[in-house]
Design a protein around this nucleic acid. Structure first.
Lengths: 151, 151
DNA sequence: GTTGAAAATAGCGCAGA
DNA sequence: TCTGCGCTATTTTCAAC
């Protein structure tokens, strides 16, 4: 249960090790973070139950089971006032195909990751959603040929 | 080792099960695909050695916890041969700060999302890791001021 | 947080279709 | 060659401290 829990450095090292090798044995993990296996396992289960560790997966080579189309979209707004930004972000949140977005300091205003079942769905998304988002000045889409797991 | 072998339906079911649960025990996996544990384990090891299974990883909940610095990094390689790409991706996977990467069709070769506790750590990461990755020709870092949760 | 012991699992050689 | 069986080492898991 939520206890206003902060991750300490041991928890972070556990997460880091599991990101590198999701199938590491609890014993090896415990040795790596300097804990006894049972203490390590208790922390691991807590991290899993709390939802911080959402699951585990194998990294499969090639087109595998095809997650469809992954597009990285660079978006520039007409203006960068907080009002414009807030309006744009609110609109983004209403579209589940936008899996991830970042408001950038630099050349672009927003970088989005958009996930669709196929290219046809992406074209439709671009036409009917992206280009109609409020305050958009310019859109550049690039497509991923291969991505890390966990998208 | 690679014998130009085609994956049969049992292999595909193994891969599928491991995508869903990367930490499933070999026994449970064997039961799921209808094999004895030892036969299943041998197939699993073959898939790992052949590079079809590239690794395992934990799915960690969004950056929420530590906040810190989110950098979007555009990387161009010296060459785009599959050998260069494979070498680069293998190096990426060894660094947990690289939370996400995409091999792009288009202007850039790779787009990475890098997460560090603070800017100082990012500078160190850039200097000691990014710029030393194999085959890198150009690196451009942009920083996020605000990001969506649940990456 | 630790230790220790029982249950479950992984990993190997060997024999057979 | 691939499968399945039996055995042993390793790992997980739980109890008690």
């Amino acid at each position: 249960m939520p206890q206003t829990e902060i991750l300490d450095s041991v928890d972070r090292r556990i997460l880091s090790a599991l990101r590198l090798d999701g199938r590491i044995t609890n014993q090896a993990l415990a040795a790596k973070v300097g804990l006894s296996p049972s203490a390590c396992l208790r922390r691991l289960r807590t991290l899993e139950r709390s939802g911080i560790i959402q699951g585990y997966t194998a990294i499969i080579a090639g087109p595998g089971a095809g997650d469809g189309v992954t597009a990285i979209v660079h978006v520039t707004l007409e203006r960068q006032t907080e009002e414009y930004l807030a309006r744009f972000e609110k609109a983004l949140r209403q579209h589940p195909d936008v899996r991830e977005w970042h408001l950038m300091a630099g050349q672009y205003d927003y970088i989005l990751r958009v996930q669709t079942p196929d290219m046809r769905a992406y074209e439709s998304f671009h036409k009917e959603v992206l280009s109609r988002l409020p305050g958009v000045a310019r859109i550049t889409s690039s497509f991923a040929m291969r991505s890390s797991a966990g998208g």
